[in-house]
Structure formats: structure tokens, C-alpha cells
Design a protein around this nucleic acid. Structure first.
Length: 1050
RNA sequence: GGGUGAUUAGCUCAGUUGGCUAGAGCGACUCGUUUACACCGAGUAGGUCACAGGUUCGAGUCCUGUAUCACCCACCA
């Protein structure tokens, strides 16, 4: 036992906790001390988490704060538990999102468009943006206390990650899983790029069904005088119609099959064909389509995915009628034979936007008396998740990854743990399929979602997966490492390199044909297109290719391609690093549900494909942070609150604790926000438009002339920090006070303990403990077990809640209050040791969620009482809690007797307090108290009556089986006996109180009697429950007797 | 159109395999500054667990249906 410091140990532990003052110094110490660093060694079981890399588009918001708090809790817990734990930080270049943000800024500040710059120059601007926000994000994470290994910070587009992307692409290309395809993509006409299916959001919009009459004609175009009526929501696409379809089973209309119509405006003669896809009209149908349908479907293969498929079935011409900006154009796939002749009817429509063209075409049909009808119709339309523009199905050349291959989607499906997999007839899961033999391979199976329901999202997505369009017409991203040339004269040299593994080749022969429209194939005969994928580190080959007429593909990869490699690339893949073998598979992926398909599933596919093992086995899907209107908090909606706001106002620990305690398995978390106008400083609540499809934000920035907003962080810290079109909102929720109060409580409990521990030495040899000591040690062991159990189950709400309950109620309200009378005395030495130990354990248990305040208090505890622990609970010593061990307790400390007796004391205390409060006895007045109870019970409770005295400010004057009731005393009834509080009471109030208790007991008795008189209950219910009911009934009856007796005596 | 989740005190939410006399925090009310803490302590009030059926000795919990809200998926005739 060291000598306590002579100076006042509390001098540097001020009366209240000021997180803003304490946290920065602690953070600096951790960072300087390399507290988060991990080495790829065999020191402890490996534990690794990859951060879901935040986009570098904007600062983090509370959704990220939640996500990262949970990861930090897990990482710190693992580290304290002796694991070799690493948390790998990094950011995502977020291709389209970042480019869009920068394009907007450049347009606003310089009045220039992207195309006004050279590619490299513009990428440089995006790079600068990335540098700025990466720094901001990193700083935010550090201040939140995230214990990432900062030496390993990665970026999805840095050199190491670029190498991984390059290698992955090359391997997939070589294996024949990457191909060039010409088909309909989801085209965003604003950003002018293709989008993956997942990047398309559907929204309900109010539109119309237009019924257009097409004149029927013969094969030569001579009108028969008849007409058919097609129904469409998109009249403007009629310019690209190449057929009209009818369901062959549609009796009255099937007769038109084989005839032709003359397409208005274009005068194109197109066939009427039969296809099952067409819905047969039925005005009484439940299906709205059947109610709206005319039976004739216009077929526009270039502008509708269904029509495209019909076109494939019937070998129809594909006529694209739009330019990439979705204006009507005859230059992007219009049939040459129609183009050659001037068409004065068509001319006025050329160049119109699709919206204008729709109106113009409808007007034209009306003028020609060909518009049969217009009906309003509400339907879903795909929109770009980035620009929010309506998606145009667009026929173009793109790169695809064949994720439908069994080695990708099939392997991912088989990876799902059998306990979470639903019965399926998917070929990958059928008995005897390729992967069935691997079913027992622990490397490739056992993927488990928490909560389990999300496994279904994963499974369904993989079962219905389509090939992944991986090319994007952007500048910000990983350039596709493929060089293309026409002709075959260089094939020999390329084959040589291919044999050496330096390049891979894709050969496509094609002919100039009617279906092409992009001008590439205007010569006659078959052509050879060579697409050469070059492996990484082959600059001379790239140079050679360019010297010989090959051109690198201008497109970049979908941002999720590099994200999908994250658990590998952050650990050094494609190099076979020690880190890779140690920490991949990682331990858990902790993310929100929105990216299960975009990200989780692709990591699973890639890790399985390239390394033959899962990237992680556990996937924890946590709640979403929403604003006060139930909308998810996101950058694009502008309702994101900067975590720095909360850190400044409440402290990082308070934020973390509150977020963790709100993380339940089902509920999303609502955090009301206000917006702050940076110019006026006014606070306003964002407006919302309620549509039947959901609540949508009227984006505040757009309403304010596109002027930038600032976060309240900027305002709070006195510096205005514009965040462009990604404004941050201000938190108005009081929820964070929960964590703040708790940190303060812990702080003050520690101050109390330290002040006492400093004055007298604890007794390191702990034996013959008091009831309170035994009870709190027992509860401490249970708290440790509860924390372990809940963290293992990713049950953060109960982890935080359990510790809150333990520290506040059990330690502070009961234990500390119980030992106060003795804590300063020589007899209190044992309690001092117990208190120090309990505090030690509390700080350790709380450290993962509240690292700062626990670290701060830890140094105080070390200074005052360096030797802590009792037999069975003897934690290690350490200077810094960040490097401390997780407590382990001997279950022998669980004291069932103490756990039974102490609650009796608590009950008596509760009853006395109730009476005192009811009788308005001044709290400072010590009153006499006597307790009438049976001998056996009295003997049990008697040694602990001083606790009752201390906790109720009473003096125990008599205990035993024959204690008479003093005249006028208040009566306290309870399971331990009957107590008499020696105060003069108001008879009426006493009667009221007793009558109330009587009513409660009678009600309870009625319930219990009802249960016991039910023979089916007594015979069928488990015997211990029946016994419990009997005991309850007996106790209630006895107390009721007593209450009635006391009432009678009043 | 399909799927998932939610509906419990004024508010925000817990409630594990059915055993509940339904809990917590905030807010409300009463009392209290005895040297850890007023960001505190003691106490009180407040709920036919969305609705309607069903299973069961027993339903907040399981089943069926209805209503409302949110989210995800789906090829926009």
C-alpha cells in the first residue's frame, strides 16, 4: 500500500465535469501514446473492424456518430479483453456524389462547368475538396474518441487501394467475368452517367395516362381506315416506337396481330405483334394496370426496359430518340433511312427536353384528333439518388461484372448461415450444386446478421441479382484499365503479353448492322474490337498501346467496386501481408441497413472470390438516426447534425452514451433538428411536404437561393464554416442530457470516493464483509457478466442501460448511501476497499462507451488508491485505462443471501420513506422506529438495522416478535414485518394511506385467488409458479390482516 | 404490387423462450440544499399495451384480420 499523496488529491478534480476542458488533453495523450496502434503479431486473438468509409462529400453527421460509437465500443472492449484489436479507418471517394458536389461549387463560385476544364485539372479540384473533408472527418472521429489505428488510415483512391482495384479488375477480366454490353442502363440525364440499379430511388409521381390513336395500315403503309389506341405515360417516347404489341389471348384485339400501323409524326410503318406480356384490359380488375390498359402496348425498345425485352424477343429495331441530356435528338441512333429525308412534322420536336416534348407531342396528337383520352395516374418513377432527376432508360455501351456467376452470387448465398437462410429453389442452393460440397467449410459459411431479419434482404437480393453495371461516365474514380482498339493487326504481340500474365484480352467481333446507332460501325463487314485489360505496374505496355492506336476507356468504375474490396485492400491485398492473414476475415461489420445490398453483399462476393473466405462473419445492422419527422438523417436532405455540436455542448462521452443507449434492435432514433440560417442567424424548422408516398423535405438550401448554410458548430465555435450545399442542422433534442447527467454522476461519485479513500487507508485484506459490501460485490459481478453478455449480442441498449442502473441506482443510491456512516471511520476500512474496487470495475466497464471521463477519473483513482481489488475480483494495475484490462470476476462473489436480504432492507427503507414523506416529517428530524417481526425474520434483519437507520434517518428502538404499537404511531407494513414510526400522525391521512394500501392488497388478493381457484392453473402451470403464487397470496393476506387491524385501531 | 418494422404513461422508448400486480428516462406535482452530485436526493400522480377476433389455466408477448405510420424491393403502359 502506497502512501496517499499529501496534497489534496481532489484539487485537480473540480466539483463538476467539464468535458470541453478535459477531453482534448486526454485525446492528445492517447494519440501521443499510440494507444490505438496494433501490430500484426500473435499477441492475443485477432480482432478487426473496418470502418464503413464515410464519403468525403461532407462532414460527418449524427448517423456516423452512432455508427462509429458502436464500432469504438466493440473495439475498445476487445482491446481491453486482451485481443489484438485493430480498427481500420478510412474514407470513400464516393465517385458521383463528390464530383456532383464539386461541380456545383465550381459552378457557383466560378460560373464554370466541368467540361470547361481539362480532365486532370478538374480532378485536381475534386482532390482538393477530398483533402479538406477527409481532414475534417478524421478530426471529427478523433474528437469522438474513436480508437482507430490512424497509422493505417486508407482512402478508396489512394495508391494502395488503386492497386487493389486494378488487380481485382484484372483478375475478374481474365476470368471472363467482366464484359462489355450494350443495353438499357439507368441513365441520369443531369449528371450524364449510368447508375446501378441500387442507385435508383423510386418515387411516386402524379402523371397521366395518354391514349393515342395510331392509324392501322398495310405493310406498304396504306391506311386501312382503322386505328388502334395505345396507352402510355410517356408519349414523347413514341418517336422511338418500333412495334405495337397485343396479347394473343386478348380475344377482341388479337385479330390485329400481323397488321401494321403508321406511326404518327415519324410516318414509320411498324408491325402489330403478339406478346404475352401485354396486359389485357379489365375495368373491374384489382390491378390498376388492367384498369388503365387499352390492350395495345406501344413498344419502344430504347426507352423502356420491358419494351427492350419485347424487342429482343421479336428482333425489333432499337431507335434511341434522345441525346445524353434527354433532349429529343435524331443524332444518337435514329435510323439513317428516316434521317436522310427532311421530315417537317418531326422537326419542331427536335431539341426539346423530354418534358417539353411530352407536352408538344400530346398537343400535336390533340390537334390531329388522335388523342383519345387522358386519365390522371399516380405511379412510381425511378429517380437518381444523386441528382434526383427522373431516370431515363438509355441504350448505351457499359462494362458489366457478371455477378450472376455462381462463383459470386452463388457463393454469397451459400455463405449465409444455415440458421438464417430461408428455403429456396435458387440453383446455387439446390442440393448437389457446385457449392454444396463447401457447405461445411467454415471459411466460406456462417455469415450471420444481427438482427436476423436482415439476412432476408441479403438472400433475396442475391437470388434476384442481375449483372452489375460497373462503368460510370465520370472523371472522379478509378479509371477502367482497359485499352480499346479496332482491328487485329496487333494481336500477336498482345497474345505474348497475355501468356506472361501482363494483359488480358477481350475480343469482340461485330458487324455494321441495323441495330447500331452510335456511329461506331459505319463501315461494311465484320470488325474486330480488341479490349486489352492491363495488369498493374505495366506502364510500358500502356504506352505501347497508346502509341499503337489504342485508347484507354474514358469511364471510371462504380464507387462500390473499390468499397467492395475494403476488408482486403485496407489490409494490404493484393500483397499477402501479415495483416491480411491475421485480420481478414474481420470480426464484425457494423453498418446501417441501407447498404446491405450496395456494400455488404459485394464485400462478401469479392472476399470469397479473391481470398476464398468471408470478409466477416458477423454483420450488425444498427438503427438509423432520423430527424424529428422520421426522415433519415442524411447529407443530401440537409438535416444532418454535426457531432461536434454535441461534443461542444454535452461532451463526447455524453453523445456516445446517449447514442448507444438508444440503439435497440428495432427502433430508429429520432433527433429533432432545426436549421440555422447563416446570414440572419435565425433558426427555422425545415418545411416538409406530406405526400401519400411519404414525407419529403423541402431542401432548405434550395429555398434560400442555393446560398450555403452553416452548421451550428461553426456558430458555436465562433467561426462561420460554410458547408456549401450540404448544410448541417442544429440539434434540438434534449436526449443528450441523459449521457451528460450520467457522466456528471459518475464524476461526483468518484469525487466522493476519492475524498474518503484519501483520508484513511482501505483494508486490502477483505474478509467478514458487511451486508452492503457483500451485496454490491455480488451486483458488481453481475454487472460484469451483463456487460459481457450484452456486448457479445450487440445489445448496446442494454449494455449502456445496465451500467446506468448499476452505477446510479446500486452503487450511488444504495451502496454509497449505506456506507456513508462508516466510510470515514476505522471500521470502514473494508468498505473503502470495496468501494475502490467497485469504482475500478465501473470505470473499466464504462470505458468503451465513455472513454474520456473514465480515463480522467482513472488517473484520480490511481493517484489516491493505487491498490484495489478484493479476493475474487483483483484487477490489474495500469496507468492509463485505455490500455487496461477488462474485469474478470470470480462467481464465488455472487452472494445469494445478500441478494435476498438487502432488498428486504431496501423495502423497509422504502416504506419508511413513504410514511415520512406522507406524514411530512422534516427530513433532518431523527425519529424513533420499532419493528415488529417474527424471531426468525428478526434475526436475519437485525444485524442490518443500522442500514435502515442510516437510510431513513431513524433510530431503531426495539425489534422483536412482541413489539407493541406506540400510541399514534404510523404503521409501515411489508414482507419483513410491521414497523412503527414513532411520530404523531394525522389520523385521517393515516387512514387514507392504509386504505389505499388495503385496496391494492385486495386487488392483488383477488387476482391471486382467482388464479389459485382455477384448477386448470394449479394442475397445468409449472409447480414453481404455483408455489410462487401461493407465497404471494399468503404474504398479501397477512399484510392485509395487519392493515385492517391497524385501521380498526385508529 | 411484394417485403420488413412500428403502434405500450403527456414525450422518447424498454419489455428476452407467453407467468406482468406492465418498467425507464424526460416532463408534471409535493418535499428537501445533512460537506459526492440541484446536471442532485426523497416521494407522488399518470397506461382498458392501436382496434377486432382466436389459441391458452394465463396474451403487451403467439395466430388471423383491420387501421395508421415509416422504410426497403419491384421493368415508368
Amino acid at each position: 500500500m502506497t502512501t496517499p499523496p499529501t496534497d489534496n488529491p481532489l484539487a485537480d478534480l473540480p466539483p463538476s465535469y467539464r468535458p470541453a476542458k478535459e477531453e482534448p488533453a486526454i485525446l492528445e495523450r492517447w494519440l501521443a501514446g499510440d494507444a490505438y496502434q496494433a501490430q500484426a503479431s500473435d499477441a492475443g486473438d485477432p480482432y478487426a473492424i473496418c470502418i464503413p468509409p464515410p464519403n468525403v462529400t461532407a462532414p460527418l453527421h449524427l448517423g456516423h456518430a452512432l455508427n462509429n460509437t458502436l464500432q469504438d465500443i466493440l473495439t475498445r472492449h476487445a482491446r481491453m479483453s486482451g485481443k489484438n484489436a485493430v480498427w481500420l479507418p478510412g474514407t470513400d471517394h464516393a465517385g458521383i456524389a463528390t464530383q456532383t458536389v464539386v461541380e456545383k461549387r465550381v459552378l457557383a463560385e466560378e460560373g464554370k462547368r466541368r467540361t470547361d476544364f481539362e480532365r486532370d485539372a478538374f480532378v485536381g479540384k475534386i482532390q482538393a475538396w477530398k483533402d479538406e473533408y477527409e481532414a475534417t472527418i478524421t478530426d471529427q472521429l478523433k474528437q469522438m474518441g474513436c480508437s482507430c489505428d490512424w497509422d493505417r488510415q486508407a482512402f478508396t483512391m489512394d495508391n494502395a487501394r488503386a492497386k487493389a482495384v486494378r488487380e481485382a479488375f484484372f483478375q475478374l477480366f481474365k476470368d471472363g467475368l467482366i464484359y462489355r454490353g450494350k443495353r438499357l442502363v439507368n441513365w441520369d440525364p443531369v449528371t450524364q452517367t449510368a447508375l446501378a440499379d441500387d442507385e435508383v430511388e423510386s418515387k411516386d409521381v402524379d402523371g397521366n395516362f395518354y391514349y393515342l390513336n395510331y392509324p392501322v395500315c398495310d405493310a406498304e403503309g396504306h391506311p386501312t381506315g382503322d386505328h388502334v389506341t395505345v396507352a402510355t405515360t410517356r408519349p414523347e417516347t413514341m418517336l422511338g416506337d418500333t412495334a405495337v404489341a397485343v396479347n394473343p389471348k386478348d380475344e377482341p384485339r388479337a385479330k390485329y396481330i400481323g397488321q401494321y400501323v403508321k406511326l404518327p409524326i415519324c410516318d414509320r410503318v411498324i408491325p402489330i405483334l403478339g406478346d404475352d406480356y401485354v396486359v389485357i384490359p379489365d375495368p373491374d380488375s384489382d390491378d390498376s394496370k388492367a384498369r388503365m390498359a387499352s390492350g395495345f402496348l406501344k413498344v419502344t425498345p430504347a426507352h423502356d426496359t420491358n419494351d427492350y425485352e419485347i424487342g429482343q424477343r421479336h428482333d425489333l429495331t432499337i431507335i434511341n430518340v434522345m441525346a445524353p441530356d434527354a433532349s429529343i435528338s435524331i443524332d444518337h441512333g435514329w435510323p439513317p433511312e428516316e434521317k436522310s429525308g427532311e421530315n417537317p412534322t418531326l422537326a419542331p420536336f427536335i431539341g426539346l427536353t423530354r418534358e417539353a416534348a411530352r407536352k408538344a407531342i400530346v398537343r400535336w396528337f390533340k390537334e390531329q384528333d388522335l388523342l383519345a383520352e387522358v386519365k390522371p395516374y399516380r405511379h412510381a418513377v425511378g429517380h437518381s439518388y444523386r441528382s434526383h432527376a427522373a431516370i431515363e432508360p438509355y441504350y448505351s455501351d457499359q462494362w458489366y461484372l457478371k455477378v450472376t456467376d455462381d462463383k459470386l452470387a452463388g457463393a454469397a448465398l451459400r455463405a449465409l448461415d444455415a440458421s438464417q437462410r430461408e428455403a429456396s429453389d435458387h440453383p446455387a442452393l439446390s442440393p448437389g450444386s457446385a457449392g454444396e460440397s463447401a457447405a461445411s467449410d467454415s471459411n466460406t459459411t456462417g455469415l450471420t446478421f444481427t438482427p436476423p431479419r436482415y439476412a432476408k434482404t441479403f438472400q433475396t437480393w442475391h437470388e434476384n441479382i442481375r449483372d452489375w453495371c460497373i462503368s460510370r461516365q465520370l472523371w472522379w474514380g478509378h479509371r477502367i484499365p482497359v485499352w480499346t482498339g479496332i482491328g487485329s493487326e496487333h494481336e500477336e504481340q498482345i497474345d505474348l503479353w497475355e501468356a506472361e500474365g501482363k494483359v488480358a484480352k477481350l475480343k469482340q467481333s461485330f458487324s455494321a448492322g441495323a441495330q447500331s446507332w452510335d456511329g461506331e460501325t459505319d463501315s461494311s463487314g465484320n470488325l474486330i474490337r480488341l479490349m486489352i485489360c492491363v495488369a498493374s505496374d505495366q506502364p510500358s505496355i500502356e504506352q505501347w498501346l497508346e502509341n499503337n492506336g489504342f485508347q484507354q476507356d474514358p469511364d471510371v468504375l462504380d464507387t462500390w467496386f473499390s468499397s467492395a474490396l475494403w476488408p482486403m485492400s485496407t489490409l494490404g491485398w493484393p500483397e499477402r501481408t501479415p495483416e491480411l492473414d491475421l485480420w481478414n476475415p474481420t470480426s464484425v461489420l457494423c453498418t446501417a441497413r441501407e447498404i446491405i445490398t450496395l456494400w455488404v453483399s459485394r464485400m462478401v462476393m469479392f472476399n470469397l472470390y479473391f481470398l476464398g473466405r468471408l470478409p466477416f462473419r458477423d454483420v450488425f445492422i444498427h438503427a438509423m438516426i432520423q430527424d424529428g419527422h422520421g426522415q433519415k438523417m442524411s447529407k443530401s436532405l440537409g438535416n444532418g447534425v454535426d457531432p461536434m455540436d454535441i461534443i461542444h455542448s454535452h461532451g463526447a462521452d455524453a453523445m456516445r452514451f446517449t447514442l448507444a443507449s438508444m440503439t435497440t434492435q428495432t427502433q430508429d432514433v429520432r433527433m429533432p433538428v432545426d436549421m440555422v440560417d447563416p446570414h440572419s442567424g435565425e433558426t427555422f424548422t425545415p418545411k416538409f411536404i406530406t405526400a401519400s408516398g411519404g414525407v419529403k423535405v423541402a431542401a432548405p438550401t434550395q429555398e434560400r437561393n442555393g446560398k450555403s448554410m452553416v452548421s451550428s458548430y461553426g456558430l458555436a465555435s465562433g467561426e462561420v464554416k460554410p458547408s456549401d450545399d450540404q448544410p448541417l442542422a442544429r440539434n434540438t433534442s434534449e436526449k443528450f442530457e441523459l449521457g451528460q447527467r450520467f457522466a456528471t454522476k459518475l464524476w461526483n461519485a468518484t469525487r466522493f470516493a476519492l475524498s474518503n479513500l484519501a483520508e484513511a487507508e482501505p483494508d486490502a485484506v477483505v474478509s467478514s464483509l458487511s451486508l452492503a459490501d457483500k451485496w454490491i460485490l455480488s451486483k458488481t459481478v453481475r454487472a460484469i457478466e451483463h456487460a459481457d453478455k450484452t456486448l457479445k449480442a450487440y445489445d448496446f441498449h442494454n449494455y449502456a442501460g445496465g451500467l446506468y442502473e448499476f452505477v446510479w441506482n446500486e452503487v450511488c443510491d444504495w451502496y454509497i448511501e449505506s456506507v456513508k456512516p462508516v466510510i470515514k471511520t476505522p471500521e470502514g476500512a473494508k468498505s473503502r476497499q470495496v468501494l475502490a474496487t467497485v469504482l475500478d470495475v465501473s470505470l473499466r466497464l464504462l470505458h468503451p462507451v465513455m472513454p474520456f471521463v473514465t480515463e480522467r477519473l482513472w488517473s484520480g483513482l490511481n493517484a489516491v488508491c493505487p491498490q484495489r481489488g478484493v479476493l475474487g475480483l483483483d484487477p490489474d494495475e495500469c496507468d492509463e485505462l485505455v490500455g487496461g484490462n477488462w474485469p474478470a470476476a470470480d462467481r464465488a462473489l455472487i452472494d445469494l443471501e445478500a441478494e435476498e436480504v438487502f432488498p428486504r432492507v431496501q423495502h423497509v427503507v422504502g416504506m419508511i420513506r413513504e410514511v415520512r414523506a406522507g406524514a411530512k416529517v422534516p427530513p433532518r428530524e431523527v425519529v424513533d422506529f420499532s419493528l415488529h417481526m417474527e424471531d426468525a425474520e428478526a434475526e436475519r434483519v437485525r444485524p442490518n438495522l443500522h442500514l435502515v437507520e442510516a437510510l431513513t434517518n431513524t433510530k431503531m428502538v426495539a425489534v422483536g416478535p412482541d413489539i407493541p404499537k406506540p400510541e399514534g404511531a404510523a404503521v409501515v407494513t411489508g414482507p419483513a414485518g410491521i414497523g412503527y414510526l414513532h411520530v404523531q400522525i394525522d389520523t385521517a391521512e393515516e387512514a387514507e394511506r392504509l386504505n389505499k394500501r388495503k385496496a391494492e392488497l385486495e386487488k392483488s388478493l383477488k387476482t391471486l385467488d382467482g388464479r389459485l381457484s382455477n384448477e386448470k392453473y394449479t394442475s397445468k402451470a409449472p409447480s414453481h409458479l404455483v408455489q410462487q403464487t401461493r407465497d404471494q397470496r399468503a404474504a398479501a393476506a397477512a399484510e392485509l390482516d395487519e392493515v385492517e387491524k391497524q385501521l380498526a385501531e385508529l
